[in-house]
């Protein structure tokens, strides 16, 4: 698994597509509003969550937000499905460096995204940060 992170609009998906030659058809975008994390279901696929048949999973932070709203821990759900993404490219926006949000849900989102990135960073064979369109190899 290749983890790509960085701030919003920095060119993370562009980098992934250029690097691997993927088209939009091979990208699943969690921001499209189709990710539904159920409070009780055990795995993401069964919960009509992320489509792991795609090679690239973009906007993973939106999946994390769905987890926050359902009272689930994103990294635990991901760990259960690890077989499904072990060869994927996972892209997540780094939302860790701004002002601490006033809203409790946004604060929980920020923290859970941090925990998720730490977990995925450990699991990844490659970690890349994209800064103003420029990739930096972290791992």
């Amino acid at each position: 698994m290749h983890l790509i992170f960085g701030g919003a609009y920095q060119g993370k998906l562009d980098y992934a597509k250029a690097r691997y030659g993927y088209t939009d058809q091979e990208v699943y975008d969690c921001a499209l509003g189709k990710v539904v994390v159920r409070a009780q279901e055990c795995d993401i696929a069964a919960a009509n969550g992320i489509d792991f048949s795609k090679k690239v999973i973009d906007h993973l932070e939106e999946f994390v937000l769905a987890c926050v709203r359902s009272g689930r821990e994103a990294k635990e759900l991901l760990a259960k499905d690890s077989e499904m993404w072990k060869d994927s490219v996972l892209i997540c926006t780094d939302i860790s460096s701004g002002i601490v949000p006033c809203d409790a849900e946004m604060r929980a989102w920020r923290e859970m995204t941090g925990r998720t990135l730490m977990y995925l960073g450990t699991e990844a064979c490659e970690v890349t940060r994209v800064f103003c369109g420029i990739p930096q190899q972290i791992k």
Partner: peptide, 9 residues
């Protein structure tokens, strides 16, 4: 200014 890492809508 790097204003891209906020946890905010």
């Amino acid at each position: 200014d790097y204003i891209y890492s906020d946890a905010e809508r």
